[in-house]
Design a protein around this nucleic acid. Sequence first.
DNA 1: CATGAATGAGAGTTCATTCAT
DNA 2: TATGAATGAACTCTCATTCAT
Lengths: 200, 200, 200, 200
Amino acid sequence: MPSVPTAESPSDAPRVMRADARQNLDALLEAAKTEFAASGVDTPVRAIADRAGVGVGTLYRHFPRRSDLISAVFRREMDACVTAATEIEASFPPDEALDRWILRYTEFLATKQGLAAALHSGDPAYAPLADYFSARLTPTLERLLESARRSGVRIQDVDAGEFLGAVANLCHGAEQHGRSPAHAERMVRLLLAGLRASDG
Amino acid sequence: MPSVPTAESPSDAPRVMRADARQNLDALLEAAKTEFAASGVDTPVRAIADRAGVGVGTLYRHFPRRSDLISAVFRREMDACVTAATEIEASFPPDEALDRWILRYTEFLATKQGLAAALHSGDPAYAPLADYFSARLTPTLERLLESARRSGVRIQDVDAGEFLGAVANLCHGAEQHGRSPAHAERMVRLLLAGLRASDG
Amino acid sequence: MPSVPTAESPSDAPRVMRADARQNLDALLEAAKTEFAASGVDTPVRAIADRAGVGVGTLYRHFPRRSDLISAVFRREMDACVTAATEIEASFPPDEALDRWILRYTEFLATKQGLAAALHSGDPAYAPLADYFSARLTPTLERLLESARRSGVRIQDVDAGEFLGAVANLCHGAEQHGRSPAHAERMVRLLLAGLRASDG
Amino acid sequence: MPSVPTAESPSDAPRVMRADARQNLDALLEAAKTEFAASGVDTPVRAIADRAGVGVGTLYRHFPRRSDLISAVFRREMDACVTAATEIEASFPPDEALDRWILRYTEFLATKQGLAAALHSGDPAYAPLADYFSARLTPTLERLLESARRSGVRIQDVDAGEFLGAVANLCHGAEQHGRSPAHAERMVRLLLAGLRASDG
DNA sequence: CATGAATGAGAGTTCATTCAT
DNA sequence: TATGAATGAACTCTCATTCAT
C-alpha cells in the first residue's frame, strides 16, 4: 500500500508550529473552504478572516497571496480524493471502479467552484496547484482507465487530464440556484458513456 | 419631425427611438460583445463605454443594469444561432445535423465566457435571458433530437436545456491560456457520443 | 518681455474643462500644497481630498499617481519663482539680483519639504518634475550667474542645478519645530559667500 | 554565575546585562545601521530584527521606540567622529584641521540619511539624541573654529550647531540615484569657503 | 438626450506593536 | 528572556452609479 502523504501546509517545511498557530491555520482553511463554496474564490479576504475568527494579518501571514490559500484548500481535498481511489479499486471491478471514482471526484468538485478557473487561469501563481493536480489526480485516472482496458472494456483514447477538466467543467454551477444536484451527475454519466462508445 | 424607426429596445416594449440613440445602442452592443469576449462579463463598465465612444451615462440610459447589457448581447447571437439551425437542417441528414448544430452552438459559445454563469446565477436579473434561452435554443435542440430519433437513431433521453448547459460548461475556459481550442471540441464530441450510447 | 506660460494642469491638453471640475482641481492643488507643507508629501491621500472637500475618486481622476499631484503643486510655484527672476533682474544690479533671487527661491522652498527628495528619488514618475526644474529654474540661475560675471564679479564655477539642489537641501527642515526661520537664510548666505570666495 | 559585564544600555542607566542579551544588542545595532543606510530610518522594524537574527520582541525589549534605536545607532558613530577630531587636531594646523574634520563628519553623515530629519523633527523622543549631538559634536566644532581663529584665520561668526546641521543637510540625498558622491563634497567646500569670506 | 465628473463604499495590503508561548 | 504569531488600524486604489452641466 503506497503511502498517502498529506500536504496541507502552505509551505513545504513548517517543521514545528505553535499550537495556536496551527489552530488558526486550520480555522482559516475551514473558513476559506466554506466561503469559497458559498461565494466563490474571489470572496473578500476579510470575510474569510472574520469567519475564521482571526485578523486579516494572520491570514496574510499564512497565505501571502490569495492563490496560496486557494491552493491549500483545494489540495487538502484532492488528497482525500486520491486516497479514495485506492479504496474503490479494492472494492469494485475495474470498469465500475472507474465510474465510481469519477463520481467521487464530482463530489470533491461540488464545492470547488473556482478550481477549473484556477487551473486554467494561466496565472503562474496557480502553477503549483496545476502541477499538484497533474501529479496526483491525473495519474489516478490514468491508472483506472488502464485497469478498465486490461479487464477488456473498450475505452476511448482520451487524455486523462483533459477528461478530468471536462468533468470539472460539467460540475460548474451545480448546487447553484435552480439546478438540481442530479444535473451534473447526469451529464457526467453521459460523458462516461461517450468514453465507452465505439466510434470517436 | 424626424423619422421614427421602431427598434427592439432592451426592454420588452419596442419604442420610438432617435437615430443617434439607435447608433449609440448598436455601438454599445458591439463594444460590449468585444469586451466580454476579451475580458469577461465583469469587465469595467467604463471600458465598454469608452470602446463604444459614448459616455457611461449613455450606457446606463440604455442598460440600467449590467445584466441588461449582457442579456442584450447574448440574445443577438442566440438569434443567429437559432437561424443557423434551419439552414443546417435543410442541408444535412438529421443525425449529422444534430452534431453540426451543436458544434455551431459551441462557436457561439466561444466568446461568451459568462453565458453559463449568467444562466445559472440564480440572479432574477438574468431570468429574461434564461427565458429567452429556453424559448429559442432549447426548442431548437429538441427539434433536432426528435428529427434524429425519427430517422431511426437511438438517442438517450436527455433534457435539451440541460444538455445545452452541459455543452456550454464544456466550452468554459476554452481559448484560455494553455488549452488547445480543440480541447472543448473533443469533449463535446465525447458528450455527443454518450448521447448515442446504448446504456445510460 | 517674454511670455510666461502657466502650466498648472496635470496633463498638457485639457482643452476645455467644466467649471466645477476646474474648481475641484484648484481646491485639490491648494489643499495638497497646504497638506504637503504641514505633513510632507507622504501625507495620506484621504487627508488632501478631505481638505479639498472632494472624494478620493476625484483626486485620483485628476492625479492618478501621487507624483502627479506633487509635480503639479510644485510646478505652479516654480513658475512663479521663474517669473520673479525677470522682475528682480529689472530692478537690481546683477550681483545683487543673484542673491535676491536665491532668497526668493528659498521662499519657494519654504513649504516644499519633499521637493529635493522628489527630484533625487530616481523614481521615473518624477522625471517630468526634474525635467521641468532643469528646464526652468536651472537656466534662470545660469542667466543670473552669467550676468553677475559679466558685471565683473568673480564667481566660482559651479553647476547651477547642483547649486540649486544644495540650497534646497539647506532649506530642508526650516520652519520646523525649534528652528528659527532665519537659520536657513544664514546658511544660504554662507553658501552665496562661498560662491564669491577666491579659492575653491 | 555568569560574568556580568556592564554595558551602555539604551537608557541612560548602565545596567547588568546577560552575555547573550549583550550579543543581541550588538547585533541589533549593527543590523539597524546597515538597514538605515540602505533603506532609511523608516525601514520596517521586521527587516532589522531579521537581519540581526532575533525576534521583533527582542528588538522592542531593547528599544521600545524606534527613536531609541535610531539614537543608539547614531550615537555610536558620533563618538567615533568626535574621537577623530583629536587625532586630526594633533596632525594638522588648525585651519586645515577644520576642513579635514568637517569632511570626516560628512563621511559619518554618508550613511545617516535620517539624522538631520531626526534632529529637526521636534519629536521629544529625539531630544536625547539632539542633546547628545549638542554636547559632543557642537563643542568639537567650536573648539576647531576657535583654534583656527587663534591661528589668525578670519572666520565668520556662525553658530557651530547650526553649521553642522547645514552640512548634514547638504549631504542629504548624496549617494542617491543620479547624484555623484562628489556633489555633496563640492557644496560643503563651498560652505567652508563662505565661512572664510570677508563679508557676511 | 449625452456626457463624464464626482462620489464613496469596499477590497487589498502592510506593518507597528502586543503578548501568549 | 526571547520568540514570532496575531492583531487591526491605516493606507492605497478601483469602479459602479449618480447627476449637474
